[in-house]
């Protein structure tokens, strides 16, 4: 599904990714974890072609990412902070994205799921942060895509919406999609993710299932296990 080879990225003098290699196979839910500044978002943005690597290759669905944009029709992306042009109505935003992608969508179900009907005719600038995030989630799940990338999807969601989100993610997995998630809510990750990769200092420090993580760190609690790799890494 995704193949990353020897990926390097520098922002000025700050080297964020230092020769990262990664192979993600089709299907399943993968969480990308790591401390702040470890390069999670950079990695995701490299995959999306938003950040241009200094070195290395990325292939998505066997298509090179470089100088290419068509592969993005196979990806759904939920950005971390979502803000929209203020003067456009929610309804118009949905139809605009649909217009841009020219793919079949299922926004009706999603709007119902997150209870967005009352907001459809509201201008985006009048929405609260949580509602914006719901709009954002609808946009991310509107289309059927083999790859779904969610950057901090839980931001600002109320518990009901969070449950709906989890349900959605599972449904997508059932359909055989690959789902890439970053989150700092460990409870959410533990609940939803099958595999995790742990990034540290621009490289993959750990790759495997949650069970194997717990096993290798000797902690039964996921949160503690994550903290344990963080500390060992600092000590080492």
């Amino acid at each position: 599904m995704i193949r990353v080879e020897n990926l390097h990225k520098k922002y000025g003098r700050n080297e964020v990714l230092k020769g990262l290699d990664l192979q993600i196979n089709s299907g399943g839910i993968l969480a990308v974890l790591g401390p702040n500044g470890s390069g999670k978002t950079t990695l995701i943005k490299c995959i999306l072609g938003m950040v241009l690597p200094n070195k290395g290759d990325i292939h998505v669905l066997d298509m090179p990412v470089k100088n290419n944009w068509k592969y993005r029709s196979q990806i759904n992306y939920l950005p971390q902070i979502a803000d929209f042009p203020g003067n456009i109505r929610v309804k118009e935003l949905f139809s605009m994205i649909k217009d841009l992608r020219q793919q079949t969508d299922r926004k009706e179900d999603l709007i119902a799921l997150f209870g967005l009907q009352p907001f459809l005719n509201k201008k985006l600038s009048t929405l609260s942060g949580g509602t914006k995030q719901k709009v954002n989630i609808v946009l991310a799940f509107m289309f059927d895509s083999p790859l779904i990338i969610l950057d901090e999807p839980t931001n600002g969601l109320d518990p009901a919406a969070l449950i709906s989100l989890k349900k959605l993610i599972r449904e997508e997995k059932e359909k055989g999609s690959t789902i890439l998630i970053t989150s700092h809510i460990m409870q959410f990750v533990e609940e939803i993710a099958e595999e995790i990769i742990y990034l540290l200092e621009g490289k993959i420090y750990f790759e495997g299932s949650i069970a194997s993580l717990k096993k290798s760190t000797g902690k039964s609690n996921f949160e503690h296990a994550i903290a344990a790799i963080a500390t060992t890494s600092i000590d080492g």
Partner: peptide
């Protein structure tokens, strides 16, 4: 800017 990021993730 944020909206632009959303667009950048679209096939455009």
């Amino acid at each position: 800017r944020e909206f632009t990021e959303l667009l950048l993730a679209q096939p455009i």
